[in-house]
């Protein structure tokens, strides 16, 4: 449950317009805040966007977060 709450919190940081999904432009907006390069954020998006449809859902985001925490895809 804590994982889901944290994941939702991070998702909302990325999804500022509360669209319900995250696109590449949303992640690029975080470039200065997160001190990550444009290329790194592109890679993050590619890794998280499991179905490669150009938008990240909360489910995909949570899967990536759990992968980061547990080292494998558990959701």
């Amino acid at each position: 449950l804590a994982l889901l709450e944290k994941s939702r919190e991070f998702f909302q940081i990325c999804d500022r317009e509360e669209k319900g999904f995250i696109n590449r432009a949303d992640l690029q907006h975080l470039q200065t805040e997160l001190s990550l390069s444009s290329n790194e954020l592109q890679d993050v998006f590619d890794v998280l966007d499991a179905d490669q449809n150009g938008s990240l859902t909360l489910e995909e985001f949570t899967t990536g977060f759990s992968q980061f925490l547990f080292g494998e895809k558990t959701i």
Binding site: L36, E40, D43, V44, V47, G64, F65, Q67
Partner: peptide, 28 residues
């Protein structure tokens, strides 16, 4: 090699989520 790609992906994700975590903890 999927293993190398997997490891690289984990590193990218780790950077991203660690940054998000420190952003959260760094704010009041």
């Amino acid at each position: 090699d999927p293993n190398i790609k997997g490891a690289a992906s984990e590193g990218v994700l780790a950077n991203f989520f660690n940054s998000l975590l420190s952003k959260k903890t760094g704010s009041p």
